[in-house]
Simulated assay, not measured.
Amino acid sequence: MDVLSDAITAMRTGQPHSGHTRKLAPWGLRFPSTPGAGFHVVLQGSCWLLPPGSPEAPIRLDTGDVVLLPHGRGYALADALDTALVDVVLGPDGLLPAQRPARTDAPADPAATVTLCGAYQLDRVRPHPLLAALPPVLHLPSGIDRHPALRALVDLLTGELGEHRPGSHAAVPALLDAMLLLVLRAWLAETACTATTGWAAALGDPAITTALSEIHADPAHPWTVEELGARAGLSRAAFARRFTTLVGQPPLGYLTWWRMTTAGRLLHESDAPLRTVAQQSGYLSEFAFAKAFKREHGTSPGRYRAQVAGQRGR
């Protein structure tokens, strides 16, 4: 099982949206906080990112730079640090307004800044610890060429947004979802070179990755620390220490978290009886499952399903 894909799937909701714009100085945009995450790619020119949580230092973005803001906090983009900022107003749906795509057949203007951006809706009620632990800004400098798959995806997405080819309405959301995955993959790969703790280090550790994959592949299995350690090729004590250090919680603590996350998804996406949901989440007793679910989610499985159904019906 792919832990990174599961982490994203556990939080992704709604449809992503995107824009491809060309701006001439002076320009400055202040983006409000949102429930989701967003990225920007500088295709031409340069600009400044004023990150969330000021007084963090501004970040200069040059051609080829990619930046992801995973926590939905407000930030700003501008051509220069002293440019006045215009507030971007959210639409009635709580999303950023659609942007008119930059014309791909427009005359080239070397003074323009051309950007590709995208935004994702995320459910932050129960964030996966991998995404919750990300820093406020993930900056991949113009060495994006070190990640050819990401570069190719940027080219594909730019073409789809700028040329409006048949099928673009279906292609763009899929490409945006792939964009989120590849940006995270690239950042985790670069960070793993120096990380000694955290999820970047965990996903770069074959033993811990093996254990995480086993948990994600079969959360209903009655896993023990000893069995997970054996699958990872480590003694029980060595495995427990390494897992807790890298992941941030003990193996069985993460197992319970993933079981409850799996149960929430099953209640949200299927009409399976509670007994079936309990069994697929690793509980032989429906009573034990309901007790564990309420402890983790703050409500009973039945009420949780009813709340989700009510939200879908609005």
Rank of each mutant, 00 (worst) to 15 (best):
S5K: 12
A7S: 15
G14A: 05
S18K: 01
G19E: 05
T21F: 00
R22N: 06
R22F: 03
G28E: 04
L29V: 10
F31I: 11
T34E: 14
P35M: 07
G36V: 00
G36Q: 00
G38I: 11
G45R: 08
P51M: 02
P51G: 04
S54Y: 14
P55V: 13
E56Q: 06
T63D: 13
A80L: 04
D82Y: 02
V89F: 04
L90V: 09
P92E: 09
P92V: 03
G94N: 10
L96G: 10
Q99G: 05
A102W: 00
R103F: 01
A106M: 08
P107M: 02
D109L: 01
D109T: 01
D109V: 00
C117N: 09
Y120C: 01
P127G: 10
P127D: 10
L130I: 12
L130V: 14
A132G: 02
A133C: 00
P136C: 06
L140Y: 08
L140K: 02
L140P: 08
P141R: 11
R146H: 14
A149R: 15
A152K: 08
L153D: 11
L156P: 01
L157D: 10
L161N: 03
G162H: 03
E163L: 15
A178V: 12
M179G: 05
L182Q: 13
L182D: 11
L184W: 13
A189Q: 09
A189V: 03
A189W: 00
E190H: 09
C193I: 09
C193K: 15
T194L: 10
T197Q: 15
G204H: 03
G204V: 03
P206R: 10
T209D: 07
T210F: 07
T210R: 13
A211R: 03
L212C: 12
L212E: 15
I215V: 13
I215K: 10
H221W: 15
P222A: 13
L228C: 05
A232Q: 07
L234P: 00
S235V: 13
S235Y: 01
P250L: 02
P251N: 08
Y254H: 11
Y254T: 12
L255Y: 05
T256Y: 03
T256A: 02
W258D: 06
M260C: 14
A263I: 01
L267W: 11
S270K: 04
D271M: 09
P273K: 03
R275W: 08
T276V: 10
A278Y: 01
Q279R: 15
Q280N: 03
Q280A: 08
Y283E: 12
L284T: 13
L284V: 04
E286P: 07
K291D: 13
K291Y: 05
F293M: 06
K294Y: 01
E296W: 11
H297V: 12
G302M: 11
G302I: 11
R303Y: 03
Q307E: 09
G310E: 02
G310Y: 00
R314K: 07
